[in-house]
Design a protein around this nucleic acid. Structure first.
Lengths: 235, 235
DNA sequence: GCGACGCTTCGGCCGCGGCCGAAGCGTTCC
DNA sequence: GGAACGCTTCGGCCGCGGCCGAAGCGTCGC
């Protein structure tokens, strides 16, 4: 009972960070930012379901915890996740949340849209994300082993050739191809710079489009054809 | 402000899990369990710095959140982390906590011991853990790429030959070689089944020993020789 | 069977913090 | 300059939940 100062090295701040996430309104704010975009306080207030003053307080706290960063631009202030580690931690927590007690959560249509295809910080998740990872792996374009992925030579040629993804730009900095446990599918999808590039390219090609006020993405008609041709996916 | 039901799909439970972690006493309990062992409520009360009744309540809450599992054995009840995902989420949160505001945290001797060498759930972390990962990588025994590791053939021979690590037993189930961001070194160390096997073998060989009431491990005289010979590490 | 022991449940206290409306501050637009 | 706008700060209310001591319950040892 007199330990207190013992494991506190990480303890206190671990608790601080977790407590910052551990409130419904703030968790909703963070979830809204998980698509990697920067939103204004007003938009976040809407997502969180609380008033502007309350949101302001929450944002201050999230900032102090190092979870979100603020960017001032004229009379607007944009808020975004502080970095990829934050998105990673949130994703890990969601995986724990989803793996927890198998209590029946009502599965609404919105939920279904999210499970089908959504963005996860800067890459694709849901059945689409997992499907892409599976397809790339099945064709030997990516080797998913030991919990992470590596792009093969054939994979590099395929992505730059057939899809026009510039991998030279993605070579440095963040890991090229991390995997990320999908909380809805409970299987890995592709994250890292490859995942981000792939996602961005799908938007560019008009294969997917954002769904208003949601992290879900809609697969367009062009996307249905594209995913079928390039990856053999039926969407 | 009327969104509420919107991104709540993951929101509510994300908040629940985070809130369960976000209390000093509970964070201390979880940190104490991070070495993968199962502890009794009494021991955890000591670690948390609160009374037995309070600890009991905390454990109930952690269990309900799916973070901790209970094992009854006679008049004792052992508590352990519910699974590797939980350890992973905690590690990710610690990384965020460590990366946050670079405020000066007092760095005591205990802290120094933890930074030198400690267990992280079931594998090694700190300078020792990162050093082992670096050495294995430098010699081509492990390829750390894209945020995860793969064991090479030479690496397999080295580990089974020179160290006597039975990798056949580690072939199935959890990923063989994940990497895990070290919160003190801010660089990856080896986790997954390889990390666990390596850690266990170091204990078996008497190279490291547990430090009482801490996740830190001490490198023995034999360990100093062993790590130098096998990995070229000075400890 | 009886006490010792480990832990949980109960009851009550108290403070932290989430919530809002009103007011204040800074930016932009005209 | 003045009004509109977006956001933050302030003040006050209220309830959740962390804390403990005391009592209860199950297990073990003699």
């Amino acid at each position: 009972m007199l330990a207190v100062m013992n494991t506190m090295v990480s303890g206190t701040t671990l608790a601080e960070v977790a407590a910052a996430i551990g409130d419904t309104a703030r968790a909703n704010i963070l979830a809204a930012l998980m698509d990697g975009r920067a939103l204004t306080a007003g938009e976040l207030a809407w997502h969180a379901g609380v008033s502007a003053p309350t949101t302001s307080g929450h944002l201050a706290r999230l900032r102090q915890a190092g979870l979100v960063a603020e960017e001032r631009q004229g009379r607007h202030r944009y808020h975004r996740l502080a970095g990829p580690e934050v998105a990673h931690a949130l994703e890990a927590l969601m995986a724990v949340a989803a793996s927890g007690p198998p209590r029946h959560r009502p599965t609404g249509p919105r939920d279904e849209a999210l499970r089908a295809a959504r963005t996860c910080y800067d890459h694709l998740a849901g059945r689409l994300g997992v499907g892409l990872a599976d397809a790339l792996q099945a064709r030997g374009h990516v080797v998913i082993a030991d919990g992470a992925g590596s792009l093969t030579e054939a994979g590099g040629r395929f992505l730059s050739g057939a899809l026009g993804i510039d991998l030279a730009a993605a070579r440095s900095g963040r890991p090229l191809c991390r995997t990320c446990l999908d909380w809805s599918e409970r299987r890995p999808h592709l994250a890292g710079r490859l995942g981000a590039a792939l996602c961005a390219r799908c938007f560019e090609l008009g294969w997917i489009e954002p769904v208003r006020d949601s992290r879900a993405v809609a697969v367009t008609e062009a996307g249905r054809r594209g995913f079928a041709e390039a990856f053999g996916l039926a969407f």
